[in-house]
């Protein structure tokens, strides 16, 4: 442990900036393509590229099951993966608050390295800015990634068809629940951990079953419920869910029970919603269940030409009821 912290001088572009890059970032992100020049130079491949960017702010920066570094790699990797693209290269830009402990930055960079290595994506360029105390909260990270789309992959939120199965790759709402508890606003303790995970391997395994996959979306902010409403809107279809088949960790259920929250609207960071023809559904689930992050994969419903634009739940008493559409801020319902 050292007591060194990031100072404004680390962001001034001089020798201390170089020191920060050498000791923290290069030490972790080093690869032949990591550039010392103004831009990374990459070979051009044939076919189609997917290109995506995402900004990450999370408070607290470290949580049960990950940290902002891991999250920033997973987020962009998963966005690319959902397009059927193998993540190849990434850049990352840091905004660091003056006074942020160097050891913590090291921990974040180390998590990024580990996650990137697991996926096989290379970090090829980066940027560091230091903001004055109070101008940002700890550290903000923006990652951008390029991926090569597999030849036979054609997915979009607009491709869901009447009769398709709707599959979720694991239990819902864990990340949102973890962060809610980590902020400690509600005095609730639980060992629930974030589902934060890079899902390229998962997507690759899907395509080992069939190329005939209509939609792959990662559920992040807004949770699985929000993604389902987006798919219903984009594809101009209805979605029917079986309420009892939606996987929810008991700990998440407990927290949601206390605060009157709907798990389907809590954030995930390692969950895919997959829409594919019924005939492939069982095989997809079987394959997913062998995967590292997807052992609780299950079919939760189907696409229908009824109730267009809406998500409808089949309830425990045998009726159908609309899943309320997503709203803004999640606020506990108590009194």
């Amino acid at each position: 442990m050292s007591d060194k912290t990031v100072t404004l001088a680390h962001g001034a572009g001089g020798s201390q900036t170089n020191e920060l890059i050498e000791t923290v970032f290069k030490a972790h992100f080093s690869n032949p393509e990591f550039t010392a020049d103004d831009a990374a130079v990459l070979p051009v491949e044939k076919g189609r590229l997917a290109f995506s960017t995402d900004g990450f702010i999370v408070s607290p920066w470290r949580f049960n099951g990950g940290n902002i570094g891991k999250l920033s790699i997973c987020g962009t990797v998963n966005d690319l993966s959902c397009m059927g693209a193998k993540p190849l290269y990434m850049t990352c830009a840091f905004v660091i608050e003056e006074g942020f402990p160097m050891d913590n930055l090291e921990e974040i960079a180390s998590a990024m390295e580990k996650t990137a290595k697991e996926v096989g994506v290379k970090i090829v360029a980066g940027d560091t800015k230091v903001a004055g105390k109070g101008q940002c909260d700890g550290v903000f990270i923006t990652t951008t990634g390029i991926g090569q789309i597999m030849e036979n992959a054609h997915t979009s939120g607009a491709f869901a068809k009447d009769g398709d199965a709707v599959i979720v790759s694991g239990d819902v709402g864990r990340h949102g629940c973890t962060i809610l508890l980590a902020r400690d606003d509600y005095g609730i303790e639980s060992d629930v951990d974030s589902d934060c995970a890079p899902l390229w391997g998962t997507v690759e395994s899907l395509y080992s079953v069939t190329n005939d996959i209509h939609v792959i979306r990662d559920a992040t902010r807004g949770g699985v419920g929000t993604v389902l409403y987006e798919i219903a809107g984009q594809s101009n279809v209805g979605i029917t869910l079986n309420a009892s088949s939606i996987p929810v960790d008991p700990r998440v259920k407990g927290v949601c029970g206390m605060l009157g929250l709907e798990p389907l609207y809590l954030a995930c960071e390692g969950r895919l919603v997959i829409v594919a023809p019924q005939e492939h559904a069982d095989k997809i689930v079987e394959t997913l269940r062998k995967g590292k992050y997807t052992q609780n994969a299950t079919i939760i419903g189907h696409i229908t030409s009824e109730h267009i634009g809406r998500v409808v739940m089949e309830t425990e008493i045998g009726t159908q009821t609309i899943l309320p559409a997503p709203k803004g801020e999640l606020l506990p319902r108590i009194c």
Binding site: T315, I317, T319, Q320, T321, R333, C335
Partner: peptide, 25 residues
């Protein structure tokens, strides 16, 4: 809230009307 979440009104025959009262603070 629970009656809607469960879709309970859909079980009711036409002549039974379930009305919501003033019990939301």
């Amino acid at each position: 809230h629970e009656i809607f979440r469960l879709g309970l009104r859909k079980l009711l025959p036409e002549q039974v009307d379930l009305i919501s009262g003033p019990g939301c603070p």
